[in-house]
């Protein structure tokens, strides 16, 4: 496969625990480390809004236990933010001969294989924070809603190259619905 796009970060995946799912002989492409920052900034903004909203009952009622809601929300978001680097490092994809492999998740791990020929469309979206960091999100859509292949945190030009590559290989392996 000569036209396979070279991802910027082709470093090996972090070592997985022994009982976890590990496919032998797959060199996973990692997403850009900058995506960690994007995720953290996004969660900080969202978490700040939600936590503030969580404290409203306390401010309104002035009843001390009501503040627990806001505290719990804040703690949850802090935990999510603390785990973000590992979660982002766990996102990976691999372009095999005839299918695309995609993995994500640490606690709840998921590996998906989707043959190129099953592609219905490829979507590239860019949120405001990701755009500032020069990142895009690539969505590989099949006829099944549950396939859920979303590779976020790809450098913009990589995403476009990957999209063109996917469209090209899908065209040669077209399958009827």
């Amino acid at each position: 496969m000569t036209d396979q796009p070279q991802a910027t970060a082709a470093t090996p995946m972090p070592q997985a625990p022994p009982a976890a799912l590990e496919l032998d002989g797959t060199d996973w492409q990692r997403v850009s480390p900058k995506y960690i920052v994007v995720e953290i900034v996004g969660y900080l903004i969202f978490g700040a809004i939600m936590t503030t909203a969580g404290f409203i009952p306390f401010w309104v009622s002035d009843w001390a236990p009501a503040s627990l809601l806001g505290i719990a929300l804040g703690a949850c978001f802090l935990l999510v933010i603390a785990l973000t680097p590992r979660r982002v490092r766990a996102i990976g994809y691999a372009l095999r001969e005839d299918d695309l492999l995609f993995r994500r998740g640490i606690l709840s791990q998921r590996v998906t294989a989707v043959p190129y020929g099953r592609m219905q469309l490829v979507d590239i979206t860019r949120g405001p924070i990701a755009r500032a960091a020069g990142l895009s999100e690539l969505r590989f859509v099949t006829a099944a809603a549950s396939s859920g292949i979303v590779i976020s945190g790809l450098p913009a030009e990589d995403a476009e190259r990957l999209r063109d590559h996917l469209v090209a290989v899908a065209e040669t392996r077209r399958a009827g619905l």
Binding site: L107, S108, R110, T112, A113, V114, P115, S147
Partner: peptide, 10 residues
Amino acid sequence: MQSVSVRQGP
């Protein structure tokens, strides 16, 4: 079939 996935949770 469209795709296949293997999952493992906690």
